[in-house]
């Protein structure tokens, strides 16, 4: 359990936001934490699942973020998978 600062962009949003997640969070949870600041606020909500891309690779929803090779302040891209 350790705090992990990340920058995240939800595709379709205007800006990149700063978030602090837990390194034990799943990719699914990280995606939701970033989507929280964009979807329904500036990006229209959809029913599609939310995915996370780190360094060009789309993470498996159950992957633990701390075990993906991520470093603090890395950038993740979050998007609707459809």
């Amino acid at each position: 359990m350790a705090l992990l600062p990340l920058s995240g962009t939800f595709l379709g949003d205007v800006t990149t936001v700063g978030v602090v997640v837990d390194d034990e969070d799943t990719a699914e949870a990280v995606g939701q934490k970033i989507a929280h600041h964009a979807v329904g606020r500036r990006v229209a909500a959809r029913t599609a699942p939310i995915r996370v891309r780190l360094g060009g690779r789309v993470l498996d929803p159950d992957e633990i973020i701390g075990r993906t090779g991520v470093s603090p302040y890395d950038h993740v891209e979050v998007f609707f998978d459809e």
């Binding site: 962009t9 595709l11 800006t15 936001v17 700063g18 600041h37 606020r41």
Partner: peptide, 26 residues
Amino acid sequence: AETFPETLPVACNLCQLPIVRAAGVL
């Protein structure tokens, strides 16, 4: 409530303004 923010945008370490490359993509 949804029109207000709950975290900060990531600011550029030079100009100190929000990084809006996402809008550049759009």
